[in-house]
């Protein structure tokens, strides 16, 4: 099922075929989870929101219109709305303020702290990039989207996305370099 086209699965899901929607879920759940997790920085919240994304998508699958937007872009719109609601509910507008980084049971507190520090430093560095460059790096390296998916979502050619990614990495290297220098 994993190889059937999104269009076919969506069409079947719209008729109430749960197995077709389950296949779409399997195909995109990790990307959506990563996308959400990067924005809420808490495993439990990311799981709740991710689950809600797919529950809403299943209920609204008949309203999905296959046009320019990919199915995954549609899921991302739902995810973004839910993340916005999440922060609105908690009165947290600045995503980078959230320090609630989860640890795994096998992680020592020292390592966890170091990771959290690294993660925050990296996030801050990424946040200094131009919006489009941030989007491309996050979609590519955190969310795990292909160039083709990013190009459709951001309405730019795949070649342009590669160039933006390259420039974003160059800029990020400079930002990190500057910060390392200023930290001594």
């Amino acid at each position: 099922m994993a190889q059937l086209s999104d269009d076919l699965l969506i069409k079947k899901a719209a008729t109430g075929d749960k197995s077709a929607f389950a296949a779409l879920y399997d195909r995109y759940v990790e990307q959506i989870y990563r996308h959400v997790y990067y924005r809420v920085s808490c495993q439990a919240d990311a799981e709740d929101i991710t689950q809600e994304v797919f529950i809403r998508a299943w209920k609204a699958i008949r309203r999905y219109q296959r046009g320019e937007a990919l199915f995954v872009s549609w899921l991302l719109v739902i995810a973004r709305n839910l993340v916005t609601d999440f922060y609105r509910a908690r009165k947290k507008d600045d995503l980078l303020e959230d320090k609630n980084i989860p640890t795994t049971p096998d992680t020592s507190p020292e390592v966890a702290l170091e990771r959290r520090f690294e993660k925050d430093e990296l996030r801050k560095a990424i946040s200094k990039l131009k919006d489009l460059k941030q989007k491309v790096l996050i979609m590519r390296f955190i969310d795990g989207f292909s160039y083709s998916e990013i190009s459709r979502a951001l309405r730019k050619s795949e070649g342009a996305i590669r160039v933006i990614q390259y420039r974003a990495l160059l800029d990020l290297r400079k930002i990190i370099g500057r910060e390392e220098e200023s930290n001594g």
Binding site: G16, V29, R34, Q51, I126, L169
Partner: peptide, 30 residues
């Protein structure tokens, strides 16, 4: 690139399986 890539969270298989079963517990599509 690797430093960003390493931050990629890993989804728990238990959650993945649980959430999948919950999707269809509610209403049917539209």
């Amino acid at each position: 690139a690797e430093s960003i890539h390493q931050q990629r969270p890993v989804i728990s298989p238990q959650f993945k399986s649980y959430a999948r079963s919950r999707i269809f517990a509610g209403d049917s599509p539209a």
